[in-house]
C-alpha cells in the first residue's frame, strides 16, 4: 500500500515510471505534469496560488488521496489472483414465493451452461443474480458463492476487477469514437498489458464474425446491429480477464454464432448463456430450465442428444447458405 505522503514527496517522473497508469489519472484530473518530472507533487501544487487552485478546482489533499487510492486499486488488480474455479448457486424462491427444489448448483471452470425457459420466465434475472453476486438481496433471494465462499463485496463495486464479463441484449453505442479508439479505451479500463496488439486482434476477430466487414476508423455509432454484436463478442472474448462470461441471447444476430461461441469458450472460463437456440443449448454441457422465475430442472447434455446437433448444424448451414445468396442478390434456386 502506498500512502498519500509517499506520493507527495516523490518526483513526478519516477512516479510515472513506476505507475504508468497515473498519466491518465493526472490528465483526467486536469493536472498538467508535462515538463515537471523533476518536481514533486507538493512542489507542483505550491506553484499554484490560491486563485489558480480555485480556478482549476484543485484540492491538493483530495487529489493526493485519490492518487494513492488509484495506485493501490491498480496494484491490487494487477497482482490479483483472479482464479475462480467454482460458482455455486444456492436456491431462492420462484415468482410465487415457492422455494426452488435443489440444494445447490455448482458450476466448474471450463463448463458451459445454458439457461432455457419461456419468455419472461426469469433467465435474465438469473444472470443478473450472478453478476451482482446476490446474497439473498434480489427478488429471487438466491445466493451466489465463489469458490465455495461468500465473496468479498469488492467484486460488486470495482470498475476494473470484474467477476463477470457480460454480453447483453443491448448493443447500442452513443459515444463519439471510432472502433479503434473505443476498443483502446476499453482495453485501458481493463488494464490489458499489450493494448495495441489486443485491439488489432479484437477488430480482426470481429470482422471474421460479422457478415459485412468494417474498418477500425468506422465510428462505433454507425456500425450495423450485426457488426456491433460481432465487435462486442470479440471484445468480450479477447479483452476481458473476467473468469465468468454471461451471455444473454446471441442467436438473433447477423453473425456466425458457432464461431462466436467458440471464440468465447476459452478454457479458463465459466460460461452461462440464456438462449432459445437449440444449437447453442446443445453445445453446452448442461442446461438449466427456468419456469415461473425458479430453477425447475438441470439437464445434462447426453451424447445421444448431441447426435441431433449434427442434424441441426446441417440445417443451419443450409439456412446460412440461402442467407448468403439472398444478401449477394442471387437467386435462391440452385444453379441459377
Amino acid at each position: 500500500m502506498i500512502g498519500k505522503n509517499q506520493i507527495a514527496e516523490r518526483h513526478i517522473g519516477s512516479l510515472l515510471e513506476d505507475y504508468p497508469f497515473l498519466t491518465s489519472f493526472f490528465g483526467d484530473n486536469g493536472l498538467l505534469v508535462d515538463g515537471h518530472s523533476d518536481a514533486t507533487l507538493n512542489e507542483l501544487f505550491s506553484e499554484f496560488d490560491e486563485e489558480e487552485r480555485e480556478e482549476k478546482a484543485i484540492n491538493p489533499a483530495l487529489l493526493m488521496n485519490q492518487a494513492a487510492e488509484f495506485i493501490n486499486q491498480m496494484l491490487a488488480f494487477l497482482n490479483e489472483d483472479n482464479d475462480v474455479h467454482a460458482l455455486t448457486i444456492l436456491p431462492g424462491t420462484d415468482k410465487s414465493g415457492v422455494p426452488e427444489g435443489f440444494d445447490s448448483l455448482v458450476i466448474k471452470k471450463s463448463e458451459v451452461v445454458s439457461i432455457v425457459g419461456p419468455t419472461g420466465s426469469g433467465k435474465s434475472r438469473l444472470l443478473g443474480d450472478i453478476e451482482w453476486v446476490a446474497q439473498a438481496d434480489t427478488p429471487t433471494s438466491r445466493r451466489i458463492l465463489i469458490n465455495g465462499d461468500i465473496p468479498d463485496s469488492s467484486w460488486r463495486f470495482s470498475t476494473s476487477k470484474k467477476l463477470v464479463a457480460q454480453l447483453s441484449q443491448n448493443m447500442n453505442f452513443v459515444m463519439d469514437l471510432s472502433v479503434r479508439e473505443f476498443i483502446e479505451l476499453h482495453a485501458e479500463s481493463r488494464l490489458v498489458e499489450n493494448p495495441a496488439e489486443i485491439v488489432e486482434r479484437v477488430i480482426i476477430e470481429a470482422n471474421n464474425l460479422a457478415g459485412e466487414s468494417f474498418s477500425p476508423d468506422t465510428p462505433i455509432t454507425s456500425l450495423s446491429g450485426g457488426q456491433s454484436r460481432a465487435l462486442m463478442i470479440a471484445d468480450t472474448a479477447i479483452l476481458s480477464r473476467s473468469p465468468i462470461i454471461l451471455i444473454d441471447e446471441i442467436e438473433n444476430a447477423g453473425i456466425d454464432r458457432k464461431r462466436a461461441l467458440q471464440l468465447l469458450l476459452s478454457e479458463e472460463k465459466i460460461v452461462l448463456m440464456a438462449t432459445h437456440d437449440p444449437i447453442l443449448a446443445l453445445m453446452a454441457d448442461r442446461r438449466i430450465i427456468i419456469r415461473n422465475g425458479g430453477i425447475a430442472k438441470v439437464i445434462e447434455t447426453t451424447d445421444e442428444e448431441r447426435t441431433i446437433l449434427s442434424t441441426l448444424e446441417e440445417l443451419d448451414r443450409t439456412i446460412l447458405g440461402y442467407r448468403t445468396r439472398l444478401r449477394a442478390g442471387e437467386s435462391l434456386l440452385e444453379g441459377e
Binding site: 491518465s24 489519472f25 483526467d28 484530473n29 488521496n65 485519490q66 487510492e69 488509484f70 486499486q73 470498475t159 476494473s160 470484474k162 464479463a165 457480460q166 454480453l167 447483453s168 443491448n170 448493443m171 447500442n172 453505442f173 452513443v174 459515444m175 473505443f182 479505451l185 476499453h186 485501458e188 479500463s189 481493463r190 456491433s228 462486442m232 471484445d235 468480450t236
Partner: peptide, 22 residues
C-alpha cells in the same frame, strides 16, 4: 445503462473511477 452496451458502460465507469477512485 439500459441504453448502451456493456463495453460502453465499462468505459464510462472507468472514466468516472479515474476522477474519483475512492
Amino acid at each position: 445503462g439500459d441504453i448502451v452496451s456493456q463495453a460502453e458502460r465499462e468505459v464510462f465507469a472507468s472514466k468516472v473511477n479515474l476522477v474519483n477512485p475512492s
